[in-house]
Amino acid sequence: MSDLFTFLTRMGDNTLVLGHRLSEWCGHAPVLEEDIALANTALDLIGQTQMWLGLAAQVEGAGRSADDLAMLRDAWDFRNLLLVERPNGDFGATIMRQCLFDRFHLLLLDALTHSTDTRIAAIAAKAVKEVRYHADRSAELVIGLGDGTAESHTRMQTALDALWPYVGEMFTDDATDTAMAAAGIAPLPSTLRAAWDTQMTDILTQATLTRPDGDFAHQGGKNGAQHSEHLGHMLSQMQWLQRAYPGATW
């Protein structure tokens, strides 16, 4: 498996899995405007998935499509971060997960607009506009709910504490990342950390939330070594029709 293919599935699996999680909210959000906004974000992410996994399939050259990659791989072949496969929890946990990821996603896409691979730069240029809006929105909600009532503050702090151990994986570097960076295709994830920290500190301060102390980081999503139990359940829903009726067109 080439490093480029691995890199592209990481991009596409993050957007696929997070888009799927957000789509679980459709019809169940706390207020109509949020229902619409969450669906919008999910739609953007699914659209980005089609582009990333479409390019991954093309790079692989094995005759698979974006849909094949999404619907017919098992959990161990997924390369998304553990953070994005966390279950939705309450609205606070969903928004906190979104905010932590959006800031990373935005920094990454910004850098990818300068990729030496023009196909990647083109996808990033389209996606970055959408993700800038996602990042503004999730930050605004984290601030609003962190600095809202005592209950909303407590819930947001609880969500932040629970998700913090999944932050570190976003910024780990491995052999694929080193190869991508050497070719000028993508930045080393570790180089994005300082900017992320600055932005997140600003958001958390405005939200009156306390940044957790520990820096322990769960690993195993982006390299596929050990996903959480939750991913398999998500795939069993997402892939069910394709698995139950192989060869059908929909």
Binding site: L16, H20, S23, E24, C26, G27, H28, L32, E33, D35, I36, A39, N40, A42, L43, I46, G47, T49, Q50, L53, A66, D67, A70, M71, Q237, M238, W240, L241, Q242, A248, W250
Partner: peptide, 28 residues
Amino acid sequence: GNWITRAPTLERKAILLAKVQDEAGHGL
């Protein structure tokens, strides 16, 4: 909404999600 998470392809998923989102918009 019952079928959004089980839509068979990425395109069908996006179309269905957009449709259910439109309904929320109509409600609004």
